[in-house]
């Protein structure tokens, strides 16, 4: 690892607070920066795509900032990518939450968590993630570990081979996807204590191994 750590672009599109993500990446030895500049994303060693809020307004922000193609290109080019919460949902074709098409990186739709008597929405708090697969970014995380969730919708990818973790809340839903150099999670690793930091640590390690810094 270079002494300074790899550079990581945290994509800013007015979708929530990025401070904790930034601090978590610093804590594990990376050099994060918050940006909405396509060129800066292209130059970074890795990309974090965070987000909280509504799908439609967020997609409009991404388009207005010219970030749709850079994000797609970055994933397609194999640059290490970590999506968080809305940053997972926006990867799909579209969402039941709104009308705007998503990024379409993964085929499938975003669905609403079922509303039933006695089950509170949003799904907010610590819940278990049952892991499947062996992506390096999820290495060393014991199966059934708890992570912090805040959401009312979930991603439902058509290709189940990308599903890397599932969580149960009325429905068994996909709480993590992973393929090639990309990982995206429904929970907030930057709010999930030591286990969450391990994901950031693994992500930084994956980048370092790739860029050989």
């Amino acid at each position: 690892m270079s002494r300074a750590g790899p550079t990581i672009a945290i994509i800013d599109y007015q979708a929530g607070n990025l401070r904790s993500v930034h601090k978590a990446l610093e804590k594990v030895g990376a050099r994060p920066f918050i940006t909405s500049d396509a060129r800066a994303i292209e130059d970074a060693d890795g990309v974090v795509f965070p987000g909280q809020g509504a799908c439609d307004s967020s997609m409009r922000q991404l388009k207005a900032r010219g970030l749709v193609s850079p994000i797609r290109a970055s994933i397609a080019g194999g640059k290490p990518f970590l999506g968080i919460c809305l940053g997972l949902q926006l990867l799909l074709d579209g969402s039941d939450e709104g009308n705007e098409p998503g990024l379409g990186v993964l085929a499938g739709r975003v669905k609403a968590l079922p509303r039933e008597l006695g089950r509170k929405i949003p799904h907010m708090g610590w819940n278990r993630v049952e892991l499947c697969g062996s992506h390096p970014v999820l290495a060393g995380i014991p199966n059934g570990s708890h992570f912090y969730f805040v959401h009312s919708f979930y991603a439902d990818p058509d290709d189940t081979s990308v599903v890397a973790g599932t969580t149960s809340y009325g429905v068994e839903f996909c709480s993590a996807v992973a393929w090639d150099n990309a990982v995206a999670v429904q929970f907030h690793p930057e709010k999930s204590g030591a286990m969450g930091l391990r994901i950031y640590e693994n992500f930084v390690r994956q980048i370092t191994a790739r860029v050989g810094a």
């Binding site: 607070n17 401070r19 904790s20 601090k23 978590a24 804590k27 912090y148 930057e190 709010k191 999930s192 204590g193 969450g196 930091l197």
Partner: peptide, 28 residues
């Protein structure tokens, strides 16, 4: 606190406006 502790934080006391809330949320 928010820069060093990576679990959810709730902050209260004396918040009177949406702008007050926004400052606390931005602080972490």
């Amino acid at each position: 606190v928010a820069d060093q502790v990576f679990i959810p934080l709730t902050v209260g006391g004396g918040l009177r406006t949406v702008a007050d809330m926004h400052r606390m949320l931005k602080a972490g």
